[in-house]
Design a binder for these strands. Structure first.
Lengths: 122, 122
DNA sequence: ACGCAGCGATTACATGCGTAGTCAGTGAGG
DNA sequence: CCTCACTGACTACGCATGTAATCGCTGCGT
């Protein structure tokens, strides 16, 4: 039932996942500089995230402090699953294969994933 | 420079990647039944994909036949890259790790990916 | 010769999103 | 006390998207 998080909203979530609870102003300060958002834009996004029930706010004197309600891990796994289902019939191997074929997976990637898989087998 | 392909547009692309060139009607027939689209909806989507320059049409008597201009492989790699950049700092390993941790990668997946990686190393 | 069925093109419309301005309340400073 | 700065809430607005109806053309059947 967790509502869809848009691209811009996701940037705000990343800030809150990194550190929370934060005030709206603190969030605005921490948003990556390349999106040069006005403070109002950040407040709008916080409002929409509240409406979507993916963050909560607790009163703190004059203002609110915002904090995520969904774990980053849940979100990223959900998004990854959606992509893998949509593009690769739900199978992980073709994803790796496509990237490998076109995108030059590094030797380091290979080593890391092999180590990871070895661990999983035990 | 390839324009963004939306979710609904992607469903149309999948049909054309599977088989092409096709007429609008043929595309409509092949679109998965769970999205019960009117023929008009499919035609609108084909028009938008044309405008985005990701498909082309060639006249065939009364009608057009549509055919993809971008390869499926290019598209899926692009989308995968975008997700991995956005959620995992561009590294493939954390994706695999997250899925493994939460989503029970199957033994078969592990075997397949190991085989794939072994091949890549040679 | 004429009307109709089929086709692409154009138009429509509600919703979501990105981005931001404005409003109303309230606590702090003079 | 009164004003002002700050904060959250509300409003705005243009563009993308999902979904579809309507329009104009033209060849086929009669």
């Amino acid at each position: 039932m967790t509502e869809r998080i848009s691209e811009a909203e996701h940037a705000v979530m990343e800030v809150l996942w990194e550190e929370s609870p934060l005030t709206a102003q603190e969030v605005a300060e921490r948003v990556p500089a390349d999106r040069s958002w006005s403070g109002n834009t950040v407040k709008t996004l916080l409002g929409r995230l509240l409406a979507k029930n993916v963050i909560a706010h607790e009163e703190e004197g004059r203002r609110y402090r915002y904090r995520p309600l969904v774990a980053r891990g849940d979100y990223v796994v959900g998004e990854s699953r959606k992509l893998i289902d949509r593009l690769f019939g739900g199978r992980l191997t073709p994803l790796v294969a496509h990237l490998a074929e076109r995108d030059a997976i590094t030797d380091q990637d290979i080593a890391e994933i092999e180590a990871l898989l070895k661990e999983l087998k035990q």
